[in-house]
Amino acid sequence: MFFGAHLSISKGFTAAVKEALAIGATTFQFFTRNPRGGGAKALDAEDIEKAWQLRQEHGFGPLVAHAPYTINMAAEKEETWAFARQTLAADIVRMGQARIPYIVVHPGSHVGQGAEAGVERIAAALNAILRPDQEVMVLLEGMAGAGSEVGGRFEELRAIIDRLDVPEMVGVCLDTCHLFGAGYDVHDFSAVLTEFDQVVGLTRLKAMHFNDSLQPLASRKDRHALIGQGQIGATALAEVLRHPALASLPVNLETPGELADYQREIAWMRSAVLENDKIK
């Protein structure tokens, strides 16, 4: 298992790898561009190569890119839908150049069209983007189901994948807070993954976001908390980490903390895999 957190690449990939090493991480997640806008920083080939060498030297697992929140592949408005397609397509190319195997994207919000229409729009957008020879896999993120979000139910993720021309280029990233908000009780994570396997297929699970939840089960709210300071609790989250299905995955914190919090939580995550520990 590879433990990490959401870091910035504003100073380059090499600086981000060094920051990850300083907090005890062996992976990390980052935004491909401004999460609230469309601007993307030019890539530096020398920086990418230095970062790759550091990653190899220190036994890093796969890094995970995250597409900006402004992407809405379920949008009915043509301008918004076109922006989503163009931005994701461009980021897939850029992340391939940066040797990043995964890019996480929120499926989108149907904004009143209905979930079925949203699923169709998302699948159509992905079919316009995905190529069988691309180097980067798109990971649909499971959502908490707030408002008109698509992807709060496993069945919606499966419905999108079933409509794809090249489904082999799409996986899933699950988020413990989102699962809990959507009504999947991670206090019995084995049961949650059994259902996921039956509906979507466990082989599609490629990455995890790791958080506690400020809101209760089935709240349909996405409110992340530090580990042990939410409604899920450290004991249940430790059991999540021990599940064998996560053994080779990148597991990234998206908790609302600073680097010192990430360092503490990553140390706890590592120890929790080995022993029944609780965060202090």
Rank of each mutant, 00 (worst) to 15 (best):
T176P: 08
V273R: 15
Q263G: 11
E195V: 04
V273S: 04
M269C: 14
A236E: 06
G230Q: 06
V200R: 04
A45F: 10
C177V: 11
G183D: 14
D133A: 10
L7W: 02
A22Q: 11
N252H: 01
A25K: 10
T27D: 07
S219W: 00
P167C: 08
E156Y: 01
D185M: 10
G96P: 04
D188T: 08
R270N: 08
S190T: 15
F210Q: 02
H58A: 10
G233E: 09
L241H: 01
I232P: 09
A272D: 14
R153C: 03
V166N: 09
M73R: 03
Q198W: 08
G4P: 08
A15C: 04
V251F: 00
A245Y: 10
R163D: 11
G118P: 10
D91C: 06
D91M: 07
L217I: 09
E116G: 09
D133T: 15
R270Q: 15
P107K: 08
G4K: 05
A117E: 15
L205F: 10
I48H: 04
A51H: 01
A260S: 14
T32H: 00
V138F: 02
R85C: 15
Q56P: 04
R131S: 13
I160G: 03
R153W: 01
R242F: 04
S271A: 15
I266A: 03
V240Q: 04
G112L: 00
L193W: 02
M143N: 07
Q229I: 01
D185E: 08
N252L: 02
P250K: 01
A15I: 06
L126P: 00
A75Q: 09
R270V: 02
F60C: 05
T194G: 09
E195T: 11
S10I: 15
E195H: 14
V273Q: 14
E141Q: 12
P244N: 08
S10Y: 02
T27C: 13
Q134R: 08
F2K: 06
G183S: 12
A67F: 12
A247D: 09
Y184Q: 11
E57N: 07
A98D: 04
G151S: 12
D188A: 11
C177T: 08
E46S: 13
A117N: 14
T235L: 12
E79W: 04
G118N: 06
Q86W: 00
G24M: 07
A267V: 06
I100G: 04
L205P: 11
I92Q: 06
D47M: 10
V111K: 14
C173M: 03
R163N: 06
L259I: 12
F2L: 09
A90E: 14
D185V: 08
Q134F: 09
